[in-house]
Design a protein around this nucleic acid. Structure first.
Lengths: 152, 152
DNA sequence: ACTGAAAAAAACACGTA
DNA sequence: TACGTGTTTTTTTCAGT
């Protein structure tokens, strides 16, 4: 991974729709060289996904919540089951297993409060080993993305 | 926004590299119809970004943290300044302004602990109005993305 | 919204440093 | 092993219907 790879990565983190042409101009390499590097970065798993980010409001998901979940008993099994549940729940945009006060931190998106209540009832309050959870309602998405500047 | 739009959105949230051909097969519309809808969705801001998600580990950012920040005095000015700082900090992948125990929740990525310490010193401990903060170290990225299933 | 042509971009094979 | 050039193929774009 050299300077060129890093430049390519930094560019496509903000916009995957850049053409090979613009990308090549940006990094100072031929189009084909850029393309080959991109292929390799994808194969190696450096690039995990190429995705579209939607406006939650414009698709009727006005509520964005960030919830810290603490498990009652943190056995391997309990944790794995909970991970699987979060992975499969469509409301869950992101889920992290963490150290600290919470065991899980979850970013989730719902149309409204009743929907959030349903989610809570189904996933936190129905004997799945959740001891407690702290809810934060998002008022402003100050910064959204996974941009991860790869420094030289 | 109808069923077709929703199907298109659901598809490209997971993969922006789908060709018009595959997309059209998926939603059962002609290529051109899909394309026009995509254009419109972009124009309307329903699609905010099209981005690449990198593997933090593979670009030397082994530490992923989620930090809850509580401000000392929550005036408009203080909040705006802090928002701007977070927006500009390259370590910050995501930042949300929230209600609840914390005022801000920040997802940040650093190479190692010393770098995290530097970040904390610079952004939380140098008279910028931060009263306290709670750090969570991410052990597992259970689910990552912004996928937001648009239900029928 | 579909069809077919034109334009653009990406993919590929080859030659080269 | 990785870059670049020219060619082919695919994909996107844009008419007209």
């Amino acid at each position: 991974m050299d300077k060129f790879d890093r430049q390519i990565l930094n560019a496509i983190q903000h916009d995957t729709r850049l053409t090979s042409e613009k990308l090549s101009q940006l990094v100072g390499l031929s189009q084909d060289a850029c393309r080959k590097r991109l292929l390799k970065l994808r194969e190696e798993g450096v690039i995990e996904q190429e995705i579209a980010v939607l406006s939650p409001e414009k698709v009727g998901r006005d509520l964005l919540m960030i919830v810290g979940v603490t498990m009652a008993v943190e056995t391997t099994h309990e944790v794995d089951v909970f991970k699987a549940r979060m992975h499969d729940a469509p409301e869950v945009m992101q889920c992290y297993y963490v150290t600290g006060e919470s065991d899980f931190i979850i970013v989730l998106s719902v149309p409204d409060m009743p929907n959030y209540e349903s989610f809570v009832r189904e996933h936190f309050l129905s004997g799945v080993g959740v001891a407690s959870f702290r809810t934060n309602v998002v008022m402003d998405r100050v910064k959204v993305g996974f941009a991860l500047p790869v420094l030289d």
